[in-house]
């Protein structure tokens, strides 16, 4: 391991979004002055969400590590880059459908893949295909019926691909 690699693995991480966090803290401060109980309730909800998402974050970290460990940059480009073809589109669709948790939990992994040559069109496909929530399908069938769920699912898949294709066109 080179000295630079060792330093980057051991040094403090370069934090991103500190200003955003500060603004959120300020918003809490303002709400606390006006309605302390609402601010505490919001804080509790945010905290509970963080706790609930910790396993998802752990899974995402593990997945990023596995992808980086198993796949070399050339392989990532071949699977998700310019020359990925139909395989790339299908992979993005499948990943979107089976991915779990909120969209923003996946941003670090997507960012990492983009830096390694992943296509923007596939990111768009992945993010829209996440409308299909496999664990929640029974609930959707219960609320809206099987026919609606199937029709919506098909349109979501088609819509994801169209958006990905449009994104590639717009990025040229």
């Amino acid at each position: 391991m080179s000295r630079e690699e060792r330093r980057s693995a051991n040094g403090p991480p370069p934090f991103r979004g500190r200003l955003f966090l500060l603004l959120v803290v300020l918003a809490y401060g303002v709400l606390f002055r006006h309605d302390a109980s609402a601010a505490l309730l919001a804080l509790r909800r945010g905290g509970l969400l963080l706790l609930r998402l910790l396993p998802v974050f752990a899974a995402v970290i593990l997945l990023i590590a596995l992808v980086n460990w198993l796949l070399r940059p050339q392989q990532i480009v071949r699977w998700l880059g310019r020359e990925s073809g139909v395989r790339g589109w299908l992979l993005a669709l499948l990943a979107g459908v089976i991915s779990h948790g909120p969209m923003y939990a996946w941003y670090p992994m997507i960012s990492d893949l983009r830096e390694r040559g992943g296509r923007d069109g596939l990111v768009v496909v992945f993010l829209f295909a996440r409308c299909i929530k496999v664990p929640l399908l029974p609930l959707m069938v219960d609320s809206f019926g099987l026919r609606f769920t199937l029709v919506l699912g098909l349109y979501i898949l088609a819509g994801s691909l169209v958006q990905g294709w449009l994104m590639e066109r717009l990025q040229r």
Partner: peptide, 12 residues
């Protein structure tokens, strides 16, 4: 910071 900020905002 981004993730914690988002979750704080979600709570709000």
């Amino acid at each position: 910071p981004l993730l914690v900020g988002i979750m704080g905002l979600v709570g709000l």
